[in-house]
Each structure stands twice: as structure tokens, then as C-alpha cells.
Amino acid sequence: MVVHGSLSDAEIDRVFHALADTTRRDIVTRVLAGEQASISALAARYRMSFAAVQKHVAVLEGAGLVTKQAQGRERIIRGNPERIARARELLSQLEELWKARFSQIDNLFAAPPPQE
């Protein structure tokens, strides 16, 4: 059974690829927590170059997890909670699928043995 939410397979792949990296998860956490930040401000928080942080933000933006808005010379990064909610919906559907399978296994073990 293939579980589909409101995201395409390609979008799902991009979201989970983006979230597979610790730095990108931290960036998403910061901006979803209300910390609007420029790429420069984010880069100051990590032991990596500005260009490396910029690449992480580009991956997150490609996955729809963050948006960039021009504000003067800066690019302000904001989180996209709607995309996170869609990914959570997919994980919830997968969890329900597993729970149903475990329930079937539990029912097999609870059934009385066949009489001979």
C-alpha cells in the first residue's frame, strides 16, 4: 500500500532529504520558533562558511520548508509550518499503517488455536 498525502513523491523526497541533515534541521527549528534571520545571521551561528549555510538554506527552500524574502540587501529566512504539517501527516499515515499491521499480528496471537 502506497501512502500519499497532499505532497507528490518528489516533494516528499526533497522534504526528507532536506531534514536528513543536522544543520538543516537546526535552521528549520530556529526559523519555525519565530527567529526570523538573515542568511548572514544564521551563518554566524555555525562553524561553516556563509556559502555553506547559503547552500543549506537553498536545499530547505527547494523542499518548501523555508522561504526567503528580500529585505533591503538581506534575505530573511522564514519557516513554512504548512510544509512541516504535510510531512507530519504523511508520517502519521505511515504510523497508522504500522499500527494496523501490529493489530493484525496481535489478533493472530490472541485467536484460539484451531481445533483438530
Rank of each mutant, 00 (worst) to 15 (best):
A63F: 12
E95M: 10
V59S: 08
R14D: 14
V2D: 14
A52H: 14
A20I: 01
L32Q: 08
K99C: 06
G5C: 06
A20G: 15
P81D: 01
Q69T: 15
A87L: 06
A18T: 06
H4G: 09
W98G: 15
E11L: 01
R78A: 12
T67F: 12
A33R: 08
R83T: 11
P112I: 03
V57M: 05
E11I: 01
A51Y: 10
G79H: 00
L42N: 01
V57F: 04
F50C: 08
L94H: 10
S92A: 14
V66S: 03
Q71K: 09
G79S: 07
F50D: 12
V31L: 10
F102R: 05
P114E: 06
E61P: 01
G79N: 03
A52I: 06
V59K: 07
L65P: 00
R25E: 12
A110L: 04
G5M: 01
G79I: 02
P113D: 00
R75Y: 09
A51Q: 14
L7M: 13
L7T: 03
A85V: 00
L90V: 04
L19F: 08
A43V: 01
A51W: 11
W98S: 13
L65D: 02
E35C: 09
G72K: 02
I84Q: 05
G5A: 09
H56T: 09
P113H: 00
A10C: 13
P81E: 05
L91M: 15
P112E: 05
G72L: 04
V3K: 06
A110N: 02
N80H: 14
T29V: 10
K68M: 09
G62D: 01
Q69I: 14
I27T: 02
V53Y: 07
N80L: 10
D106Q: 06
G62H: 06
L108H: 04
P112N: 07
E95K: 06
D9L: 05
S103A: 11
D9M: 00
T23R: 15
K55W: 14
T22K: 13
S49V: 03
R47D: 14
E95T: 05
L7N: 00
L60T: 07
L7I: 00
D9T: 02
G62T: 01
T22L: 15
N107Q: 09
S103R: 08
A85Q: 00
A63S: 14
N107E: 10
W98C: 15
S49P: 03
R78K: 14
A37R: 09
G34F: 04
Q54E: 14
D13H: 15
W98H: 15
Q93F: 12
L42M: 07
L94Q: 11
L60E: 08
D9P: 02
A33S: 14
E95D: 13
K99Y: 11
H4A: 12
G79M: 03
P81V: 01
Y46K: 11
A58V: 00
D9E: 13
A100P: 03
E61L: 03
A70N: 10
M1W: 12
I12G: 00
P113E: 01
V31I: 05
S49C: 03
Q104K: 09
F102L: 09
W98D: 15
S49R: 13
G62Q: 01
S40H: 15
D26S: 08
S40M: 13
N107L: 07
S8T: 09
F16K: 02
V28I: 11
A111C: 05
